[in-house]
Design a protein around this nucleic acid. Structure first.
Lengths: 351, 351
DNA sequence: CAATAGTGTGTAAGAGCTTACAATTTAAAT
DNA sequence: ATTTAAATTGTAAGCTCTTACACACTATTG
């Protein structure tokens, strides 16, 4: 069954059927009804491939997600898909892994599929020799690219980010202000955001004129969901004689590990050990005590990202970069006053 | 740039270029090389829409996921996407919500897109008047449908399920065997699996000839991630005088809420309150104590589902239903011996 | 060396839609 | 009733590929 069958049955030309199908205003209401009736009765569905061929689009957008099973990224995908769908787009999801290779492959698959745009979530751009991102720039020359929480200054690439530097600096300052100066920064991925947070942590120390200790910035090189591994890792540090009274984690999973470590070693939280996570995810509520965490406005970012995307697809002029601000959500693993957690902002501005 | 340009430059016909592109064996190696060189040099990428039109497929498969931000379903999507991609398929993801309406819309979108198959995860089929599933059956007449953890006996519909009935019965029996007879079954969705678990719970009581108490089967009608809500809900039950020494939850989120409830009320876990969750997700590890939970072999199910799907697409004969068996993973919220947790199996078989 | 069987390549007919442009009908204006 | 303009409809040419079928060429066989 195709458009010819319908046109024949309705006694009109295929052009008219096509017009009806596409809601063109230049169709006499009576004709429209006649055609619609036939279509409804016959259950005819236009062939999307032929349509795509004619229009050079199938209204689909590719989402490259490093790991959609990750709680945070899963939410990102969820928000993005919902918003795009409401705008009439379908999403092709590819779980690429965090490596460039996987993303490059994903990108080439999507360009082959002739998606209208590509959205990337779960960044890896930090070792970032510019050449590491070349493949993204190449892709951007064919189709607009939208990055969630990653920076890339390149035509046709649009970034929606949270200022992780500032958020991590604030969080660190809050701890420093409360008198804790031996803060362990714990991160598990050399992602763009992980490194930004590290810079923020360091900046806070500079602000307070406290020298940095390299041992207090630890990379946990473990599998993604290995909470027990984190716990053991921290136990190892303790045994090596490292002393810390706070942990600033680059994600909530690590923070859960830190809380676990505290319990295992009978260290009172937050009295003897403060813990701050990142993402303010569900995990923070599962833990006991609930974990103080930085909320980085994921939903707002995603919705902005989609807005930018739709704008670009409609040939509107859109800002190449939109920055959100994270917010420290106080829960049970810290004892901070509002005053303490805000105090870096008074001095801020010149960083 | 299209296949004509390439054919011209290579001095061959478009048919030959097409053959080279599709790896047809009927091409002289020298010709193949000549054509490939031109293609590589020019960066030509075949038009997927035209290809789709000719082949009547773009090798894409639709995934309808009720809520891809849910930890469990996010993992399902992740596993499925990975496996499908390895088989050369792209995934179109639609987050449909749990209602039939959303799924019906999603299905029609996907049929419009002419996907090769549809996979559905996150079931709602329980109020299931057969007519409620009519839309799925209709879809199945056009494209094969694969259900994760849902049952539907219909041609061209393939189900990969975990026997939640048996798993819940086992878990309940384990508790009963250990002497706890006042077990609260807590569920938060009237999904297929939620109801199966309920039946399993009831079956265990029948087996042990203990009368059921309707108050001990509670539906938590709250938002998905509302752990505090669960906690308050249980507090409410307690205040109403309901006594229970174990909670069997239909998912880990509820179980976390139960643990929280215990702590809030200074009820020792597992001494005074046992808790069993379902899905054995990350959440069970975040909680303290870690939560005993039923592992329902999600990864194995997903990989089987994809295997079935690929088989069907290759016109192989595939079983319409594959059943996996859940397994109770003992952690810190129960005190069960292996003996206790296995004991229903000896008597089993006639349920 | 002719007949036969492959092997390799080209021609042309689809696949099912969109849309520019031409043709026709209808409505408005004189 | 004409003319003119506007609204509607139809024709036909794309869009870019796949593939059945026909043709040409090269081995193989007797």
């Amino acid at each position: 069954m195709n458009i010819y069958d319908i046109s024949k049955q309705a006694g009109v030309s295929i052009a008219t059927v096509s017009r009806v199908l596409n809601g063109s205003p230049n169709v006499k209401p009576a004709t429209r009804k006649k055609v619609m009736d036939i279509i409804d009765r016959s259950g005819y569905v236009p062939n999307a491939f032929a349509r795509g061929l004619g229009l050079d689009t199938m209204n689909s957008i590719g989402i490259i997600c490093a790991d959609s099973s990750d709680l945070y990224l899963a939410k990102a995908v969820y928000y993005i898909e919902n918003d795009l769908r409401k705008n009439g787009y379908n999403c092709i999801l590819i779980c690429s892994g965090y490596e460039h290779k996987g993303k490059e492959d994903a990108l080439s698959r999507l360009l082959n599929q002739r998606v209208d745009a590509v959205i990337m979530a779960g960044s890896t751009y930090v070792e970032a020799e510019p050449k590491d991102n070349r493949y993204i720039m190449n892709a951007a020359s064919q189709t607009p690219v939208f990055l969630l929480n990653a920076d890339l200054d390149c035509p046709n690439v649009y970034c929606t980010v949270c200022d992780d530097f500032k958020a991590a600096r604030s969080a660190t300052c809050a701890l420093l202000n409360s008198g804790i100066t031996d803060i362990l920064y714990l991160y598990n991925s050399r992602s763009y955001s992980g490194m930004k947070k590290l810079s923020g942590y360091q900046a806070a120390y500079h602000m307070h004129k406290i020298p940095l200790n390299a041992d207090m910035m630890q990379f946990f090189d473990g599998s993604h969901e290995n909470i027990d591994g984190v716990c053991r890792f921290l136990c190892g540090l303790k045994e090596q004689g490292l002393v810390f009274h706070a942990v600033l984690a680059s994600d909530d999973m690590l923070a859960v590990g830190a809380v676990k470590y505290g319990k295992m070693n009978h260290i009172a939280i937050p009295e003897e050990l403060s813990v701050i996570g990142y993402n303010n995810s569900l995990l923070t509520v599962c833990s006991d005590p609930e974990i103080t965490s930085v909320d980085n406005k994921l939903e707002a970012m995603c919705s902005q990202l989609v807005r930018t995307c739709i704008g670009v697809l409609n040939s509107e002029s859109m800002p190449p970069k939109v920055v959100y601000q994270g917010e420290l959500i106080h829960k049970g693993t810290t004892r901070l006053t509002d005053q303490q957690s805000k105090s870096d902002q008074h001095k801020g501005g010149h960083f």
